[in-house]
Design a binder for these strands. Structure first.
Length: 591
RNA sequence: CGGGAUGUGGCGCAGCCUGGGUAGCGCACCUGAAUGGGGUUCAGGGGGUCGCUGGUUCAAAUCCAGUCAUCCCGACCA
């Protein structure tokens, strides 16, 4: 049936952007139940509220409401990038393989890189990131130090063929990213560019209304030597962050360091071979011998890049961190040896591998320096050594930080106990140095006539993930609670008795006033019962709700409700628009 | 990639194992009526090659094989 509001126009602003929209014709399909595939709250709510729909694993449609919020994130990001002097460009998503071969990432990037051939059998990739393309562009166009510094950004769809896409927009394969790249004459200048982006990111996530932390991070596949991640704090986050409450150091668990407690073993004690039947794992062995797990030296056999065997030693009460180990191997991927490989290389079953007399490269965690000696495999089934002493019974090639930090471990900087919380990585800033400019030959001429490689930085924000993170942080049992800055519309306008002429008239008038003031309004013009409209309004989570009913109208009033704190107030019909404008303004200003 | 599970109308599910025989329920959708401040009620209606392919059988959603898709866990505890 045609709503009596069907004549109410969709309101556009002077740029043609939609200010006011009618619910009935907006493709905002709300659901009572979320699809079974949705696991976390943001994914469920974004589907139920009609923001997104899945097309394939890790690939999503944005519906009108979802796109509006996405655009808000985009606008905030663009504004801060512009403010900090970055210039917007748009690079192609499809890139020739040659560039990736030049940078070395054609081999290095792995199966996450989506590769394909064109009709001429030429290799292409769908860009997961754009260091190669941007460096190539800048290499061609920038010659002189006079052109620097330069910071270029784009907002564009990327594709990474993730091992395991999940959680809706949180870890999609196709996703929208803002990526920026800075080019400077030297490290000091690059540091300034980095600081500027760091500050821009602080602003971006503050304006998005997120609770976040900037943490020291590992550089990962992008490469480079220094980076911070911007983490939105949420229990459903995929990353763990170690926080020091005392010195306020925050670091990704892959980067966090601690001086974990352990009791040093004796020195100059005799090496004893002991029968240890049925002790395949550390806890069993500790129980059998009546020793702390910390005094057991775990010997883990890895194959660097699946080839060269490497023995990694670590105290029994800590876990090895593969990312740290990879760094210790100069970027070679450590692959845990299979039982068969271990037995072939070391001559004993797993669990009894020994560093004593081992002919392979040995890397030991820093903690072993403090441990001095401990229990180690004896290189024979069902036997372990007691008092195996570092530097006496076996030599290590290097002591490196290999252990994963555990909650309560003393901070490596100040000694205070670390806490571990979970976070969602929404932004990442890197100092790249010259690795890409050197590989691709991007140089500039300095004032002294010398040619040098450009010093680069790169800076990314996941837009969809930022949106999902916001929902993850801002919701209740009834639905989403958008911060004003990201809400698809600022005001929900709910006429309760759509057939009542007075209600209809007041609604149309208020819709006009609000949109004339520049407010964004979603008018629920559906001829539905009040309960359903309230439920949907809560689900969509627009920050302000205006209810117009026969009852309130009889007193010349409308009802205003705040979605976040659920406070209700009555407002005279002729003042409601002004009052709402003030509220929106107040809720938009940074807290 | 390894392990586990699931695939039945737009969404959520039952039916399968354990008796192979006209495909069901709730929500949503359409029509009508009533209702009208927190997912309203009644009546009527439309919509499904039961993921796909093959096999067994007189007969397959159901049994068998393969395949595709989706989700979960893991891919580090020697």
């Amino acid at each position: 049936m045609t709503s009596i509001f069907s004549s109410a126009p969709i309101r556009l602003d002077q740029h043609g952007e939609v200010l006011g929209q009618r619910f009935s014709s907006y493709l905002a399909p709300t659901l009572k139940e979320a699809p079974a595939e949705a696991e976390i709250v943001s994914h469920k709510l974004m589907i139920r509220a009609g923001l997104i729909r899945r097309l394939a694993a890790g690939i999503y449609n944005y519906l009108p409401l979802g796109l509006r919020s996405l655009r808000k994130v985009e606008r905030i990001i663009r504004g801060e990038m512009n403010r900090f002097g970055a210039r917007e460009v748009l690079l192609p998503a499809v890139q020739p393989a040659e560039l990736w071969k030049q940078s070395g990432r054609w081999e290095k990037y792995g199966p996450e890189l989506l590769r394909f051939k064109d009709r001429h059998e030429r290799d292409f990739v769908y860009g997961p990131t754009h260091e190669e393309v941007i460096t190539d562009l800048v290499k061609r166009e920038v010659r002189s130090f006079r052109d620097l510094p330069l910071n270029l950004f784009q907002i564009q769809t990327k594709f990474r063929d993730e091992i395991r896409p999940r959680f809706g927009l949180m870890r999609g394969r196709e996703f929208i990213m803002k990526d920026a790249y800075s080019f400077d004459v030297d490290d000091a200048a690059a540091e300034l560019s980095y600081q500027a982006m760091y500050e821009a990111y602080q602003n971006i996530f503050k304006r998005c209304g997120l609770k976040f932390a900037a943490v020291e991070a590992h550089s990962g596949a992008i490469g480079g030597n220094y980076s911070h991640e911007f983490m939105v704090l949420a229990d459903s986050g995929e990353d763990a962050i170690a926080f020091c409450p005392a010195c306020s150091r925050a670091a990704n668990l892959e980067k966090a360091t601690s001086v974990y407690p352990l009791t040093p073993g004796p020195t100059n004690a005799p090496l004893i071979k002991k029968h240890t039947p049925n002790c395949r794992h550390v806890p069993e062995l500790a129980r059998f011998l009546g020793v702390e797990e910390a005094t057991i030296i775990k010997s883990l056999l890895f194959l660097a890049n699946g080839q060269e065997p490497v023995l990694a030693l670590i105290p029994g009460h800590r876990e090895i961190n593969l990312v740290k180990l990879k760094d210790a191997l100069d970027g070679q991927e450590p692959v845990l040896a299979s039982p068969e490989q271990a037995e072939k290389i070391m001559g004993v079953p797993m669990g009894f591998v020994t560093p004593v007399g081992a002919k392979v490269k040995i890397l030991a965690d820093l903690g072993l320096q403090r441990l001095k000696s401990g229990v180690a495999g004896a290189g024979e089934k069902d036997y372990h050594y007691l008092n195996a002493e570092v530097n006496r019974d076996f030599q290590v090639h290097a002591f490196m930080d290999l252990a994963t930090v555990a909650p309560g471990d003393p901070c490596a900087k100040c000694g205070a106990p670390l806490t571990i919380r979970r976070g969602i990585e929404v932004g990442h800033v890197f100092k790249l140095g010259t690795m890409y400019s050197q590989a691709l030959g991007a140089t500039f001429m300095g004032p002294d006539g010398q040619e040098s490689p450009l010093v680069m930085g790169c800076y990314g924000v996941g837009l969809g993930r930022t949106l999902a993170a916001s929902v993850e942080q801002n919701h209740d049992a009834d639905g989403i609670i958008w911060p004003m800055a990201l809400a698809p519309f600022q005001v929900a306008l709910l006429p309760l008795q759509t057939q009542n002429p007075a209600v209809a008239e007041a609604t149309a008038s208020l819709f006009d006033q609000l949109t004339s003031l520049g407010l964004e309004v979603l008018l629920d013009d559906r001829d539905e019962r009040p309960g359903l409209k309230f439920k949907d309004a809560d689900l969509l989570g627009l920050p302000l709700r205006v209810t117009i009913s026969e009852k309130s109208l009889a007193k010349g009033e409308v009802e205003l409700k705040n979605r976040a704190d659920r406070t209700v107030s009555m407002s005279p019909l002729n003042q409601a628009a002004q009052q709402l404008q003030d509220l929106v303004k107040a809720m938009l200003s940074p807290m």
